[in-house]
Structure formats: C-alpha cells, structure tokens
Design a protein around this nucleic acid. Structure first.
Length: 528
DNA sequence: CTCTCCCT
C-alpha cells in the first residue's frame, strides 16, 4: 500500500489544486493508494465531496483560547486605528507581545513610524515598546530581529504582512490586531494583466490570524471591523489561486502529462474559461501546441523547464542566437520578483545612484545581466551586494535558479554558449519568447500591439526616459496605472524574424489600421 | 515619476 498526504490543503495554492485533480484521477484506478488530505479549516465537506465522499477525521488542535473583540462601528482609517489599539494594549494589558497584520511594505513602514513617533512623545510615561517590521522583501538581517526575545519590562510589536499568517511563527505573541485586509493577486484573462489589490480578507484568514494569539497562552484578538461585517461582508474562504492567475505553465504541464481535454479536467474549482483559452492561444502562438491543441516537439522541450512558457521559449531560442549563457542568467534574474534592488527610505538617493551605475543600453534585461555578471566577478560577495544596494538573498536565489536551469539544458538539448554580452542576439532571443508582449510608441504614448491598450513604462525602468519606438515587456501589472515592468528595446523587423507565423509585415508598418496579429482561431477549436 | 501577498 502507498499513501499520499496533501498537507495545508486549505491554502488552496495553485499546486494543491492541480494535485487534487491528478490524484483523484489516479486514485480511482489504484485501490492500493490511500490519499490523506489535511486541512486547517472547517470546510471539510467540500474536500470530502470532491474525493468521492471520503471519510472525515477531526483532530482537535492543541491551542489556547483566544478572545475575539470587534469594533462597534467600522473604522474610517485602519492604520490610525492600529496605532491607537497597539498603544492601548501597551498601557492597559498585561505582558505579552503584539502582532499587527497589514497589507504591504508601505503600510508597515508608515505604521512603524507612527508608533515610534508617539512613543517618543510619551517618553518615560510608558514602558519600552519595540517596534519591528516584517515582510518578505525586508533584508534578512532585519527580518531576524523579530525573533529576539523581548527584554523584561518591555513589549514587542511585530507589524507584518500575511507572511506571519502562515509562513512563520513568532513566540510570545498574546495580542493580535487584525484590520481585516490583505493584498491579493487577480488576473484579467481578457487583457492578460495581473493586478495586486487590497481586499477584505476571508473569514478563514481572519481565524488563522486570530489563532496566532493563542500559541503560547490564552490570547486576545482585536478585529478592527464589526461583528456584522465578519458575518455578512467577508467571504467564507479565499478564492483559490487557480482562479486568480495566469495558467500558461499549468496548461503546458498538464498537456505534457497527456491530459488533452483541459476543459473537462476535474478541477475542484475550475479556473475561468477565458483564462484557459488565453493560455491555449499563447501556447499555440509560441509553437508549443499545434492547431489541434496537441503538444509539439518544441512544446515537449518547453515543458521540461519549470518556468513560464514564454521564458521557456526564450531559453530554447537562445541556442539559435548563440547566447544561452546570457539568457539563462536573465531568466534567473527575471524569476526573482523585482527584489534585486534594495531601496531603503532613508537612503533613496544613494540607492538610486548605485542602481544607475548598472545601467547599460538596450533595456532592463541587459541591466539585470550586468548586475549578475558583476556579482559573479565579485566572487558572489555579500559585501559587494551591500555596497551596491543589491539584495543578497535575491541574488542567491537567482544563482540557485540559474544552476537548476543550467542542469536541465542537456535534457532539452540546448548547447551552452556565450555571445560575450553582445546585446542584439540577447534581445532577439528575448523577443522570440515574448513577441506576444510587444508595445509600440504612438502619439498617445505606448499601446500594446495585441489589444491596443494604453500602457506605461515603469518609472524604475532603465528605459523610462528613452522612449524607444518598439518595446517588449516582461510583464504587465496594474498598480496605480497600467505598467510594463522589465522592458527592452527592439526593432520591429525582429518580430518578423522570430515569429513570422504570428506577425505580418503589414501589421508592423501600417499605423493607421488596427494592428491585430493573425487570428488565433485554431487554438480555440479544442474548446468547441 | 512608482513604491506590490505569499514561495514555486
């Protein structure tokens, strides 16, 4: 007999949901296989029902009770409400550390500053309050501070993102302050744009947060919203990731496992139809699927790499342009989420100057390559990172990703070779993977070629002031505006060179007519 | 002229 355990199933990550579908299928014709699904939430019925009415076992947790307090009326300014609540706890409540949940770096910094300023003003009237931020992109030495034991007579306040909800636990937390918001990714399959939006968190998430107060002793959770809002306005559970993300690599993976009919794949919660259609269209455009929606030889090679299809295609194309060494580095650097450059608030000018020193012509990909190359020349130095306002942790991760990808080159038969940093072949290889993400400068600024959508170069980009006519973007994100992040300059002729099946000469020259790429009707056929 | 959850 064999057993498969799926733990933390309640988190409903992309991979959990894919596993659900695959394992359910396998378990039906493998009676020797036991499947154990472990979830920390109470919605067991959904899991049980999905797995053909599997029996449910309830295992009581070993936690201390947590008293929940709600506000009588909604808070107009939850940041201010957090600050006031922390100070009230500090002055009126017995010993025990405080954990505050906020949505992101900016909010956390603001909250910490406010707390410190008010403590300064109160001076010796109150006992010491240690204010510590924690979020994923905070440098690791500063992250480590939250784990130092609180000195006697003092109290610690940890101001955190969702990182403290599941990923790490802090000893000594007795009080939790929960404003009830989090930042969530969502994906628009019509435009292919991701956005990160502050939304009310789910009841499951709120309960998880409250639980953080009861790990060492009985605790208290102060919810900065009304009991009514908890009951009537918040969703029961968080929308599963599979319904809020681009599915390019998932579709490629499933196709490579021989699952052709994705529309009828047994998803516990199916993704939006349009998301699947767009993923299929893009894979067809990349040449990973044929007109019947079947995996091509190229698609099979692309599926060997654990990265998004466009990135995979870029790596495969790099062999033709004799720059696979450079492209592997760029792929690795793009995989670590915009966390290469460190920009602390109190040293913005220094950090920006340091960043400028890395700028080379061509665009952000070439700049990333330059950063990595210099780091290698420094002997992978931590000190070098520190001096250049580069996040060591991110570079280390890029190195790991690069090593892993390099190890797979043999299997997909891509020869390692270098163009000695020459820009054109590198940018052509990028174009071969990302031709779908082309933007062009017109009178009203940049517009995407695919949807004629107005987009902007991100102010952090090395091409922010350059305004090249044609650009390729790595990703499109909506924050305060529609931003292209990580862009390179290209020549329109390259589009015909790398994707003649996708672009017609006319489309690239005639600026008055609608510049739509060829119809991608074939990929739709599979969908009926 | 921004500034963005989590870890795969």
């Amino acid at each position: 007999m064999s057993v498969i355990i799926i733990d933390e199933a309640h988190e409903r990550t992309l991979h959990t949901d894919i596993l659900f579908g695959l394992i359910k299928d396998i378990a039906r014709f493998r009676p020797d296989l036991k499947v154990l699904v472990a979830s920390a939430t109470l919605d067991t019925e959904r899991f049980s029902c999905f797995f053909d009415d599997a029996p449910v076992f309830r295992i009581p947790g070993r936690r201390f009770p947590v008293d929940i307090y709600y506000t009588k009326a909604p808070e107009a300014d939850y940041l201010e409400a957090c600050v006031v609540s922390v100070l009230q706890i500090h002055v009126t409540q017995p010993a025990g550390d405080v954990l505050v949940f906020l949505t992101g770096q900016e909010e956390i910094e603001a909250c910490c500053e406010l707390l410190q300023e008010r403590c300064r003003r109160l001076g010796s009237k109150i006992s010491e309050l240690l204010v510590l931020p924690i979020y994923a992109n905070l440098p690791s030495d500063m992250q480590a501070k939250i784990f130092n034991p609180t000195p006697p007579g003092a109290r610690k306040v940890v101001v955190a993102t969702n990182i403290a909800e599941t990923s790490l636990t802090i000893d000594g937390i007795i009080y939790v302050i929960d404003p009830g918001f989090c930042k969530q990714k969502s994906y628009n399959a019509r435009t292919g744009m991701e956005s990160l939006i502050v939304t009310p968190c789910s009841r499951a998430s709120a309960n998880q947060r409250a639980g953080r107060a009861g790990r060492v002793a009985a605790g208290k959770c102060f919810r900065l919203y009304t009991a009514w809002a908890f009951k009537h306005e918040m969703e029961e559970t968080t929308v599963p990731e599979i319904q809020r993300t681009n599915l390019g690599n998932v579709v490629l993976l499933l196709k490579s496992l021989g699952i052709n009919d994705l529309i009828h794949f047994d998803f516990m919660d199916p993704p939006p139809h349009e998301t699947l259609v767009l993923a299929l269209e893009q894979l067809y455009a990349l040449g990973a699927l044929n007109h019947l929606g079947e995996l091509t030889k190229l698609g099979r090679r692309m599926a060997e790499l654990p990265v998004d299809p466009m990135l995979s295609k870029m790596i495969l194309a790099s062999e033709h342009y004799k720059c696979s060494e450079e492209i592997l580095t760029i792929a690795a650097m793009l995989s670590v989420n915009n966390s290469i450059f460190y920009r602390p608030k109190d040293k913005v000018v220094h950090a920006d100057n340091a960043r400028m020193n890395f700028v080379v012509p061509g665009g952000d990909h070439i700049v990333l390559l330059n950063v990595y190359t210099q780091w290698v020349e420094s002997g992978y130095s931590t000190q070098w990172c520190f001096e250049n306002f580069i996040q060591f942790r991110s570079m280390k991760r890029a190195r790991d990703v690069r090593d892993q990808l390099e190890g797979l080159m043999d299997r997909i038969e891509v020869e390692l070779c270098s163009c000695n940093g020459e820009s054109v072949p590198i940018r052509k290889a990028v174009t071969a993977g990302y031709f779908y993400n082309t933007a062009r400068l017109s009178k009203g600024g940049y517009k995407t070629v695919k949807h004629q959508q107005t987009v902007y170069v991100h102010p952090n980009s090395s091409l922010f002031e350059e305004q090249p006519r044609w650009m390729i973007y790595h990703e499109l994100v909506f924050t305060t505006k529609e931003f292209m992040r990580q862009v390179i300059e290209i020549e329109s002729g390259w589009l015909l060179e790398v994707a003649p099946h996708y672009y017609k000469n006319k489309e690239l020259e005639d600026s008055s007519s609608k510049k739509m790429p060829r119809k991608q009707g074939k990929a739709r056929e599979e969908l009926g």
